[in-house]
Amino acid sequence: MDAPDICIIRDLRRSEKPIISFIASLITGILSGWGIGGGTLLIVFMTAIQGLSHSDARGVNLIYFLPTSSAALYSHIKNRLIDKKAFIIAGICGILSALITSAFSSHINSKVLKVMFGIFLIYIGVREFLRKDNN
């Protein structure tokens, strides 16, 4: 009698997980659209709450950002908020450095990567919390 119950619980968890993922990424998507770290927050959610490895969370987050930023950019372009010169120069240099470091990142020990990301998060969090401006 126990086995079917366990199966039902497992199935419920399976069916709930995509909904939770959808809601979490909807909330972080709003922040991503504003450029205030939605992707970073989604990685925290996936690793600290959903229990994904940083490597898996990194892959999901990179895919997540493609439709998210495209959707937000539609409005940003319409509102003429993008500095074209900065976008072209920073974009090209960003692509080149990301190609090199993302290939390199696969060779970093996962525990070392976790510590590095932890330090990065604490630095970003403290900096953002203490920032004094009116925006």
Binding site: I19, S25, L26, A72
Partner: peptide, 26 residues
């Protein structure tokens, strides 16, 4: 595995972009 995240992000990004000019992100 990335579909729920991508769909949520798509909707969130759309909402974020639409209300961006009206909100204070502080």
């Amino acid at each position: 595995s990335a579909v729920p995240y991508a769909l949520g992000g798509l909707l969130g990004g759309f909402i974020g972009g639409r209300v961006f000019k009206k909100v204070s992100v502080k």
